[in-house]
Simulated scan of single mutants.
Amino acid sequence: MACTSCAPGKPDANNNPAWRSALWIALAVNAVMFVAEMAAGVAGGSKALQADALDFLGDAANYAISLGVAGMALAWRARAALLKGVTLAALGIYVLAATAWAIGNGRTPEAEVMGVVGLAALVANAGVAVMLYRYRTGDANMRSVWICSRNDAIGNVAVVLAAAGVFGTGTAWPDLIVAGIMAALGISGGVQIIRQARSELSGERRIHTLENEVA
Rank of each mutant, 00 (worst) to 15 (best):
T99W: 03
Y133S: 14
G115C: 04
A98D: 12
M142T: 04
A140P: 02
A100H: 05
V113D: 01
A140D: 03
I103D: 10
L96K: 12
R107G: 11
I103Y: 12
A102F: 04
G92A: 07
T108I: 15
V95T: 11
G104S: 11
Y135E: 00
M114T: 03
I93E: 14
V117N: 00
A124S: 14
G115H: 10
A124L: 09
W101P: 00
S149Y: 02
L119I: 11
V117L: 06
A129S: 05
A121L: 07
A97D: 12
T108S: 12
A111P: 06
R136K: 15
A129I: 00
D139M: 09
E110T: 07
C148K: 08
G92T: 02
R143W: 04
N125K: 13
I147S: 00
P109A: 09
L119H: 09
I147Y: 08
N125R: 12
T99Q: 04
G92K: 04
R134V: 10
Y135M: 09
V130I: 15
T99V: 13
C148Q: 11
V123H: 07
R136I: 12
V95N: 11
I147V: 15
E110D: 15
G127V: 08
A111K: 01
Y94I: 06
R134T: 05
D139P: 08
T99Y: 04
V123L: 14
G127F: 06
E110V: 07
M131Q: 08
L96P: 00
A121M: 10
V128T: 08
A102L: 08
Y94K: 10
N105Q: 14
A121Y: 01
L91G: 03
A102T: 08
I147A: 03
S144D: 07
W146L: 02
L96A: 15
A140C: 09
V95S: 09
M131W: 03
L132Y: 01
A111V: 04
V123Q: 10
A102S: 15
R107Q: 13
Y94H: 11
A100K: 08
I93Q: 14
S144V: 06
A124K: 02
V130S: 12
A140F: 02
R134P: 00
D139F: 08
T108E: 07
R107Y: 03
V128K: 02
V123A: 13
D139W: 06
V113A: 13
A124W: 00
L96H: 13
V116D: 10
